[in-house]
């Protein structure tokens, strides 16, 4: 069970959260302007990153808020968590969070 740092509430166990998939996918402003291939890209294609992955979590059984996280999918270590709308931080520059090795 991961230990996840909600930017609003602090460290909480994974069971308080739901996973929200890849982060920074923006719904097209005018989907009708997209062709089928472009729409399928938005709808289904995912980076499935092996390494540092920007992803969404929701503190569903806590404050209820969505936020973003950088997590290394090869170790499950979080490099950072940050609020929706904030830019993706540089993982190297961020403060260590729970689950980070000493």
């Amino acid at each position: 069970m991961l230990l996840i740092s909600c930017p609003y509430c602090g460290d909480r166990p994974e069971i308080e959260f739901t996973y929200g998939g890849q982060a920074h996918l923006v719904r097209p402003a005018d989907p009708s302007a997209l062709d089928d291939q472009q729409w399928a890209e938005y709808l289904y294609m995912r980076t499935n990153t092996k390494g540092v992955h920007a992803e969404r979590w929701r503190h569903a059984r806590g404050c209820g808020r969505f936020f973003n996280a950088l997590r290394d999918t090869t170790t499950d270590r979080f490099a950072a968590t940050y609020k929706i709308g904030a830019a993706r931080p540089d993982p190297a520059a961020s403060e260590p969070t729970p689950g980070t090795a000493r």
Partner: peptide, 13 residues
């Protein structure tokens, strides 16, 4: 598990 991962391990719960 709920999240994507390549670690070949999952959670106790």
């Amino acid at each position: 598990d709920a999240y994507t991962s390549y670690t070949q391990r999952g959670a106790l719960h």
